[in-house]
Nucleic acid binder design. Structure first.
Lengths: 139, 139
DNA sequence: GCAAATACATCGTAATACGACATAAATCAA
DNA sequence: TTGATTTATGTCGTATTACGATGTATTTGC
């Protein structure tokens, strides 16, 4: 029971959803760049900071969170360490693992970025919910 | 009145939001690839199809929709035309403009992709709305 | 009818995720 | 315990794609 046929309104609503998401992503990328961070590095910092409150993030778990291959996470972390945003140290419990932590510099930047993101999201949310409703209506 | 301070829960909720969005994007990218389409080409087809129901899309308006530079849209359209998904012809009303239209092949693929996207969105929506609520609660 | 603006196009470049491959540590079976 | 397997991370070359710089054609404003 997928449903009848797709209407022009379906395509339009889906297109609008993607446009809204793109604008959010674009806002986010710009905000990160203004803080001197590539978007993916910002996401890495957020994933580390937001990981179940405050558990120990590792390279592999970061890869899971960001939906990238483990070795891509390795490279990303390498850039973050080089830029002074993250420290990496061997996990004593399993010496194959590298635990990651944010530096003060990263905490400061991430706080600013998170604040403006919350503001932006609160502005975007009603529009987003309207679009989701439009898509569900056709159900 | 931005508000007090950011809590662990704020970071976690924002991180969860991004993770949910990434999974949707990842789903979408994979679905497009299974149809032989790079994600950005899929978005272009959707933007052309969904543009206010059925108006004439142009290279420039596509750039606006995709939030890319006009010349990037040119290149993207070039790839779409080469792959047989889009036809491009001079707009008689303004011969600087190129109007874009989908081929039957593109319509067929886009219909399949849109159908499964709607299904996926309906599955994701409740989770998404919960997260948005969590972010607003802290308001 | 000419300057400015608009729309699209071309080419070389840079960023980054990936594939292929490699290393080290932990686990498990005999 | 040792050796095979799995897990976690790392290295290097490559490919994709958006961009900057720049160029051409068309339209518009005065």
């Amino acid at each position: 029971m997928p449903k009848d046929r797709l209407s022009d309104a379906d395509y339009e609503a889906l297109s609008n959803l993607r446009y809204t998401l793109r604008r959010f992503m674009d806002f986010s990328t710009s905000a990160a760049h203004q803080e001197g961070l590539p978007a993916q590095q910002h996401q890495a910092l957020l994933a580390i900071r937001g990981y179940r409150g405050e558990e120990a993030m590792t390279v592999g778990k970061l890869a899971d969170q960001l939906l990238i291959a483990p070795h891509s996470a390795t490279e990303l972390v390498g850039r973050l360490v080089a830029a002074g945003y993250v420290t990496r140290q061997v996990d004593p419990a399993d010496r194959r693992r590298q635990t990651l932590a944010l530096t003060d510099k990263a905490h400061a930047i991430l706080e600013r970025l998170t604040a403006i993101h919350l503001t932006e999201i609160r502005e975007m949310a009603p529009r987003l919910i309207d679009i989701l409703r439009a898509l569900d209506v056709t159900r």
